[in-house]
């Protein structure tokens, strides 16, 4: 059993890989921002005084966390058009990623919020702040800080999960690898290159989050 690795023959396909990497990065950045925003909103909804909002958020979170990502993706891309909601593959993939990260990060952020001592709410209340002001200024920033490592991991999981959106022909990195190997028959090399790029992206993402941490949390010891 012998196999001669031939990366040189991949060179003509580098533009395909580059385009794929760019789409993956694009999907990751937008879905991370959107997903964390949605997650924050739902975490707040879960502790709201309004029962309907609490229940709606809980249903959404449980529905997403207990179904496979690829089924969510197919539901959005193939299912929703039946209701008249037409979208491109890229849009569907993006929405699926945002919805997925939104649900998981909501639970993570909620854990951070619930870890806030009751006295923090009381101190805000006695100073005359509204519930919303207390949440935004007093409760949320330390909550993010507490669960930051978990949020970083979850965001990276979603970045890696973006490989799945190649299934609806979003032309991201895995799609590019698929395409190249079908043209060149260099499957081993194509997927190996894709894997290495994912690894590098994940490491870069972790570092970017590390940098952001230093800027966002002024007091490192809470």
């Amino acid at each position: 059993m012998s196999y001669q690795l031939d990366f040189a023959s991949l060179v003509p396909y580098l533009p395909e890989f580059a385009a794929g990497v760019w789409t993956t990065i694009e999907l990751t950045i937008i879905s991370t921002l959107g997903g964390l925003a949605l997650g924050t909103f739902c975490a707040q909804g879960r502790i709201s005084n309004e029962a309907w909002l609490r229940r709606t958020c809980a249903c959404y979170i449980e529905a997403v966390r207990n179904t496979p990502f690829i089924v969510q993706l197919f539901f959005i891309f193939f299912g929703l058009p039946a209701l008249g909601l037409k979208m491109t593959a890229w849009q569907a993939g993006m929405i699926a990623m945002i919805i997925n990260l939104g649900a998981y990060s909501a639970e993570i952020i909620r854990a951070g919020i619930e870890a806030a001592p009751k006295g923090q709410w009381e101190a805000g209340k006695t100073l005359g702040l509204t519930r919303r002001q207390i949440f935004m200024h007093i409760i949320l920033p330390p909550a993010y800080q507490r669960v930051y490592p978990a949020l970083v991991s979850q965001s990276i999981i979603v970045m890696l999960g973006s490989a799945v959106v190649s299934q609806i022909s979003v032309e991201e990195l895995t799609f590019a690898a698929n395409f190249v190997q079908s043209r060149s028959f260099l499957s081993f090399e194509s997927y190996m290159l894709a894997a290495v790029i994912y690894l590098v992206l994940a490491i870069l993402m972790r570092q970017a989050f590390g940098l952001l941490k230093c800027i966002a949390f002024k007091n490192p010891s809470l």
Partner: peptide
């Protein structure tokens, strides 16, 4: 105004 036993300052 109110002052608490555990201070309840905002740590961040």
């Amino acid at each position: 105004g109110m002052v608490f036993q555990n201070f309840n300052l905002f740590p961040h």
